[in-house]
């Protein structure tokens, strides 16, 4: 259990600090005056929220740890997808991580020998989109080594 108000206030103080530390790098006053005002406002509002979290405490349940793990894994997979485009090329990276995400949603895919079919679906869908985007809509897509 945690108090969402208090956690939010503390996190926002971290944000305030991160921004405050960068003010000295900005040469001109005109680039500084507005972000400074907003940072101060955020600090004051967060302080009020912090006080409020003691006056009227609220609690929220942590999400199921299994769910949290799944969320974490999903974010890692998405990150991997984007990071690997550089090395695997857009098409290959997309097929690989598309399939991995499918398995994350439905782990039973691995057991039921449906893996090849899943890869197939991924390959076709991504291929179709790839063609539509690059050929028909003339939209450049990210590039990698293997497939430009």
């Amino acid at each position: 259990m945690y108090n969402p108000d208090r956690t939010a206030a503390i996190l926002m103080f971290v944000v305030v600090l991160i921004f405050t530390f960068q003010f000295s790098d900005i040469p001109s006053t005109y680039s500084r005056v507005f972000p400074k005002a907003v940072t101060w406002t955020l600090a004051i509002l967060s302080a009020i929220l912090l006080i409020q979290s003691w006056v009227t405490p609220r609690v929220a349940e942590y999400t199921d740890t299994r769910e949290l793990k799944k969320v974490g894994l999903a974010i890692i997979l998405m990150f991997g997808w984007i990071a690997c485009i550089r090395f695997l090329g857009f098409y290959l990276a997309s097929v690989v991580f598309f399939t991995l995400l499918m398995i994350l949603v439905e782990p039973s895919l691995l057991k039921q020998n449906k893996l090849m079919a899943s890869i197939f679906i991924a390959a076709v869908e991504i291929g179709a989109f790839y063609m539509v985007f690059t050929r028909a809509l003339n939209v450049p897509l990210p590039r990698g080594i293997i497939f430009q």
């Binding site: 090329g89 098409y91 290959l92 097929v95 890869i119 197939f120 390959a123 076709v124 291929g127 790839y130 063609m131 293997i146 497939f147 430009q148």
Partner: peptide
Amino acid sequence: CLVIIMVTGTG
């Protein structure tokens, strides 16, 4: 799959 990869990955 291979064929599709080859067809789409031109260029």
